[in-house]
Nucleic acid binder design. Structure first.
Lengths: 245, 245
DNA sequence: GTTGGCAAGTTGTCAGGCAATTTGGCGGCG
DNA sequence: CGCCGCCAAATTGCCTGACAACTTGCCAAC
């Protein structure tokens, strides 16, 4: 069945070699469309065959992509009813991939605020636990990350990676799996906003001393100091982010 | 190819009418097997065709189930390498479904500890925000839930539902989407442990006064009092849980 | 006006085949 | 002897086409 119109729909296939498999591209496409509000909650997607054809993929690939969205609470599909977008409060917005979709466009200001508030609650507490439970490996990981931050700057990707690594090491030092799970979400949000700050060429203060204070307190095993230092760090970061949006 | 052995493998089809579709049953089966440690991290599942045949489902259904597990960070599959279970720290243990799988067997004590620690960090902070931002609807939802708790007891499912509803309304009153997302995870964990406490016939104290104090502080718009009351509540719950495990 | 059944349409599952991709060994080369 | 690059097999990834199961919403009968 040759198509009469010129097939100008290889939008998907293009991202094929990007490590992402085809269904990943479809999931990304639909995910961003939903998270960005392009497809409003309550709305129902057109049928699988139609939609799969429109994206020029097979129904299997399309369905597997929809399964991913379902697993992340973005949509719900029932026979005869179709696949409909769930209300925002059913979304798993802390899922790393959902966050990635949310940040792939201009990040919503409200979401950034919410994430920083959560960070301001969780990270000081995590620092407190870390000061009590850290072991040799944790300390080494944090010091390595700190060294990386000193070597590079937040303007470089390597520097941001070191920043991520520091926060990841810290949350890991809390030896609390639930907080470690939040680490993936939080550090992702942090790095995106950091990059955003960077892009808006706001010259941030040197972040190393703040981080070093937190690190020292944890190494010293002082929970109160660790918590306070981390709270100060997060508050400063929040100020920076607020002023550049 | 007729099977010689009597087909004693309709394990999956049995749960078909349970609202869960077939792939849901497969995902549940594999998910619990992984979370419970029956399939250790690093291990690789047998091939899709073999495994699908063993479960007596089609490859499509099996693959869609695996996509769900992939979306929740439990496994990772690459061509020729097979599907392998990821290390624990890659799991999205705060995902409601992963939590459900984790609690479908005897819950791991470490996990319960971690969840309560997270709860002890998040809920007081959420109460603080709620005291500042609650609106009429939030107050109504909380009072309704509180009334439900008064009417029933935690021994009944209705009572536990009211408890869940109270914590859900509280987190919702924080008007922070990130914390609301945690609500699903936290309240799930809370309700399971509550049921567990109930089963081990530990006679708990009356939970209504504690909840009422939190509610009053939020209605009064007093962030400090709300936070303190909630912290007290969580600490008591933690004590109860600890003593019954 | 309410209640029951009925039909249509959408997702759910199945089967088989081919293509894409990565791993791990094997041979050539330094 | 060790390292590097190539090749082939095995597994997942994707496609096609068909049928089954399940809802929903209409429609008729009470």
């Amino acid at each position: 069945m040759p198509t009469d119109e010129p097939d100008d729909k290889p939008i998907m296939r293009s991202a094929k070699g990007s490590g992402r498999r085809l269904r990943g591209a479809v999931a990304h496409y639909l995910g961003t469309a939903i998270v960005s509000g392009e497809i409003a909650p309550g709305e129902t997607l057109s049928g699988e065959i139609a939609n799969a054809a429109a994206l020029d993929v097979s129904r299997s690939a399309y369905r597997e992509a929809v399964q991913v969205l379902t697993a992340k609470g973005l949509v719900e599909s029932r026979p005869k009813a179709g696949t409909r977008v769930l209300p925002r409060n059913r979304w798993h917005i802390l899922d790393p991939m959902v966050l990635a979709w949310a940040f792939s466009a201009e990040p919503d200001a409200g979401l950034v605020r919410d994430l920083f508030e959560l960070r301001a609650v969780v990270e000081p507490a995590a620092a407190r636990f870390a000061a009590e439970r850290r072991d040799k490996d944790d300390i080494k990981a944090m010091k390595d990350a700190l060294a990386g931050m000193r070597r590079h700057t937040l303007a470089t990707e390597a520097g941001r990676a070191a920043d991520r690594a520091f926060h990841d090491a810290l949350l890991r030092a809390s030896h609390n799996d639930a907080m470690i799970a939040l680490s993936a979400s939080i550090s992702a949000a942090v790095s995106w906003t950091t990059e955003f700050k960077q892009r808006s060429r706001a010259l941030p203060r040197d972040p190393v001393p703040d981080h070093a204070r937190v690190c020292d307190a944890i190494v010293a095993g002082d929970p109160e100091a660790a918590s306070a230092a981390m709270r100060a760090l997060v508050d400063l970061a929040l100020d920076d982010t607020r002023s550049s949006m």
